[in-house]
């Protein structure tokens, strides 16, 4: 409890949306009369975030992730429930609270597009009242870590997406925040830049102890960064725990990729489903809730002449996709 940097208790949030029909007549009707529906974005959400952890906050589109992030940032208030972060109420103590948080939104840029990123950094220095000495030290540190020394003096509109994201990170970390909110920070970024950004996040989390809350659709981000994940669907938490626990709880199958010595057809192994079959190769899906891998392999070796075997686990992406679809806890 004492190690919690954020505590969310019973938070709910709804929005009013007006219903629009498809036809022209519906559009004209809407001039004079509108029907509204209330959409619950969050329903009685409870969780804590420990100091220094990297928490992945996942969910399908429209699950309520961004709403929760905005509540945690103090941008909007919940309809009910309480949230405390850094021992403050984000929406009520906004000015005091945001001094110690940073945020990178993949879809919204805080950089001035026609000016070099360094100008935004200087402005942030004034906004966060960073001393000259601390600013220089921190800026040098971050610029070297992200290897952007050459580009921070070019107009932002001339930078690639990856370069812009790196500059966004610098802008959000100059004031050494205690919590960093990352809302889809790698969207649209190439593979190399993505890897650099992930390494960077791990490094700053380790070195400066900043708590990171990350929303992402990129499973690679989740697997490489998150100590723990929360999966949200239709405003409700459907899973909370680590990645290994997620696998242990939800992994339903593993795959055997089998290479045969001879041409092999009509493969039949108990508790195994043939996913793909070629004359000298087959992919078998093993239902691990009914049998063990060792049993399945033993059955296979007894019946067929096998040259080689690869074992593949169900991917995290597939597990999460199943959870999204079922809303299971």
């Amino acid at each position: 409890m004492h190690n919690n940097i954020i505590e969310v208790r019973g938070v709910s949030k709804s929005f009013k949306k007006f219903k629009r029909g498809d036809s022209l007549l519906d559009s004209l009707k809407s001039l004079f009369y509108r029907e509204f529906e209330t959409v619950a974005a969050l329903k009685n959400v409870n969780f804590e975030v420990k100091k220094g952890e990297i928490l992945g906050y996942l969910g399908p589109n429209g699950a309520g992730k961004s709403t929760m992030i905005k509540i945690m940032c103090g941008i909007i208030e919940p309809d009910s429930g309480t949230i405390t972060a850094l021992n403050l109420i984000p929406s009520k103590d906004r000015e005091k609270y945001v001094k110690d948080i940073g945020a990178v939104f993949g879809q919204k840029s805080s950089l001035w597009p026609d000016l070099p990123a360094i100008d935004t950094f200087r402005l942030n220095k004034e906004i966060y009242k960073i001393s000259d000495k601390d600013y220089k030290k921190r800026l040098d540190e971050l610029v070297n870590l992200l290897e952007v020394k050459e580009i921070i003096k070019s107009p932002v509109r001339n930078l690639s997406f990856g370069e812009r994201m790196k500059c966004e990170f610098i802008a959000s970390l100059l004031h050494s925040p205690k919590i960093l909110f990352l809302d889809e920070p790698t969207v649209g970024v190439d593979v190399v830049a993505k890897q650099n950004i992930r390494n960077f996040i791990k490094k700053i989390n380790k070195e400066s102890g900043v708590t990171v809350i990350l929303t992402t659709h990129d499973v690679g981000d989740v697997e490489s960064l998150c100590d723990r994940i929360i999966i949200l669907d239709k405003g409700i938490h459907v899973y909370e725990g680590s990645i290994p626990l997620l696998k242990k709880k939800y992994l339903s199958y593993k795959e055997l990729i089998v290479y045969f010595e001879n041409e092999t057809k009509n493969i039949k192994i108990p508790n195994c489903e043939v996913v793909e079959s070629e004359p000298f190769k087959a992919t078998l899906r093993v239902n691990i809730s009914n049998t063990s891998m060792s049993q399945a392999i033993q059955n296979l070796m007894e019946k067929y002449k096998v040259e080689d075997i690869d074992i593949k686990e169900e991917t995290i992406e597939s597990i999460i996709g199943r959870i999204y679809k079922s809303g299971k806890k």
Partner: peptide, 16 residues
């Protein structure tokens, strides 16, 4: 054209 027409009906307030 139809899409733009429908979009123009969006804001009742600005119509009045």
């Amino acid at each position: 054209i139809v899409q733009a027409f429908k979009e123009a009906t969006k804001s009742r307030f600005s119509f009045f």
